[in-house]
Write a protein that binds this DNA or RNA. Structure first.
Length: 489
RNA sequence: CGGGACGUAGCGCAGUCCGGUAGCGCACCUGAAUGGGGUUCAGGGGGUCGCGGGUUCAAAUCCCGCCGUCCCGACCA
């Protein structure tokens, strides 16, 4: 990491910019173990707010939390053919414990389908025991070859929901319901617009019938898969004998879903909103929404301004105009650090709103506000300040989403498009390209080979083009689907 | 695992070619002044030079071996 005051710019080197923001905003740091990271308080604070918001949404849709163990018998992973193929290469395996070789090695969970459905099999006898709607917050381990802070690490934090249902349609409805929850969270909390849709067979979860996903566009025009929701069909139910007696008295296999989002979203947050001054945090996810920077010269001024700053914080946090969601305010009263230096520091950390409070402001019964996203400064009267602050925060939240949406649309290309032009785009600035596809996995593989771009989604109806593409971009054959192509993280 | 680069103070680096007292910037500590967009001055602390062996009067520097990191590739919800 450079110790220069200025960050690498996004235009200069997006990848270096990302690393610097994560490290210098103190979201995370490298660990002594290759590919692992420490999530520092600034980063974990964002994760806690993500957790709280999502957890509330899961509870509101009838789910409950539980916890399943880290260790999974290795044999479990082998019970679902496609699943083991997908995960065995990246599994971490424990072979010794208590100073002795284990009779059966234990896999550190890369995901928990196997252990969870083996337990559900114990718990379910009749259709009256269904549905089971459980979520867990946990860490998982996947032995990745190449890692990036937040985006791909050996260990990461996530939630994984696992449900069991009596019918396919009910499981499908659950899968779609959660996809909607994810979309709402990403838009309303992260201010990160996403496309939703279906993954192709080659991109789906190993062991699923089908996978739905949320895809967001980062500022380098690459796609980030930010959340997935899987309809597992009866694959795991068959593997683990998860059966129930139906109303008609027959033994039937249950229908499962699983769905997850991870700390990867924090990487998405950085790459969606960050600018050349550092992190930009959407207010709803910011552990601190408002930082008050007091300004003084003499000792008398210092006392007066500091007192006023702390009173200001009290007044703001006591305000109930947002109900239980009180304003989160910090006063930076450090001595020996000049105000300007504080401004840069808090901007780097992405605090949404700064209030500057000096003697002149106090004399005028006002303070100066500065929004992180636009860096616009406005003087605000101290009377009624809380309402004005909440208003600015709420505008910022909305503006961030709109700006990200505009950027995504400005960098999306729609059919008709030739494959030659497509290759130019993927060689250059990148984009989301909406185009026709004949549905042939071989074509998908060829495009990936030639351009590194993949089908991100077969988009849901609300994201499709007004006129469906008629022909496959590559072969000119009739199109089976409209798909979104992009390079991805 | 293949190709390339690099390991020297918390961070970023110079010094290595040509062996001879271990340095610079930032950060950190103390004091004073300063304080409305990255202050200044003065003083100070901090290093088994990745690890092991060899050559030499003498090794950060030369030789051999190992370990680790990063980039490119292979790999990857």
């Amino acid at each position: 990491m450079s110790t220069d005051k200025k960050l690498t710019t996004r235009a200069g080197d997006f990848s270096a910019w990302y690393n610097e923001v994560v490290l210098r905003a103190e979201l995370a740091d490298y660990s002594p173990v290759r590919g692992c990271m420490v999530i520092r308080p600034n980063g974990y604070g964002i994760w806690e707010r993500m957790q709280r918001a999502l957890d509330d949404m899961f509870k509101a849709t009838g789910h409950r939390n539980a916890y399943f163990p880290l260790f999974i018998p290795e044999s479990f992973l082998h019970k679902e053919a496609e699943h083991v193929e997908g995960f065995a290469p990246e599994a971490a395996v424990v072979t010794h414990g208590g100073g002795r070789k284990l009779e059966e090695p234990l896999v550190v969970r890369p995901t928990s389908e196997t252990i969870i459905y083996s337990m559900y099999a114990k718990w379910v006898q009749s259709y009256r025991d269904l549905p089971i709607l459980i979520n867990q917050w946990a860490n998982v381990v996947r032995w990745e070859m190449r890692t990036r802070l937040f985006l791909r690490t050996l260990e990461f934090l996530w939630q994984e929901g696992h449900t069991a249902h009596a019918t396919h349609d009910e499981a499908e409805a659950e899968t779609r319901l959660i996809l909607g929850v994810y979309r709402e969270f990403m838009e309303q909390w992260m201010a990160m617009p996403v496309l939703t849709g279906l993954k192709t067979q080659s991109e789906k979860f190993a062991g699923a019938l089908r996978t739905y996903a949320c895809e967001a566009m980062m500022q380098d025009n690459k796609a980030l898969q930010a959340g997935t929701s899987h309809n597992l069909g009866q694959n795991f139910a068959r593997a683990f004998e998860l059966k129930f007696q139906s109303e008609s008295g027959d033994q039937e296999y249950a229908w499962n879903t699983s769905w997850g989002v991870s700390t990867r979203m924090i990487g998405g947050l950085v790459m969606t909103h960050g600018d050349d001054n550092g992190l930009v945090t959407p207010p709803r996810l910011a552990p601190v929404e408002v930082v008050v920077v007091p300004i003084w010269k003499s000792d008398e001024e210092r006392t007066r301004v500091l007192d006023a700053a702390h009173q200001l914080r009290k007044d703001l946090t006591a305000w109930t105009g947002r109900g239980d969601d009180r304003l989160r305010v910090h006063v930076d009263g450090r001595e020996g650090v000049k105000p300007g230096a504080k401004y840069y520091e808090w901007e780097l950390q992405g605090i949404p709103l700064r209030l500057e409070l000096g003697p002149r402001d106090l004399d005028n019964g006002a303070c100066m506000s500065a929004r992180r996203d636009t860096r616009a400064k406005t003087s605000l009267p101290l009377t009624g300040l809380a309402g004005a602050v909440a208003g600015l925060l709420s505008s910022m939240q909305a503006d961030l989403l709109q700006a990200a949406r505009n950027r995504r649309e400005a960098n999306s290309v729609r059919d008709p498009i030739t494959y030659a032009r497509f290759r130019e785009i993927m060689d250059g600035e990148g984009a989301f390209v909406y185009a026709g596809w004949n549905g042939d996995p071989a074509i998908e593989a060829r495009v990936k080979e030639e351009t590194k771009a993949t089908v991100r989604l077969i988009p849901d109806p609300e994201f499709r083009s007004p006129e469906a593409p008629r022909t496959c971009m590559v072969t000119g054959e009739p199109a089976v689907h409209e798909v979104v192509w992009a390079k991805a993280y």
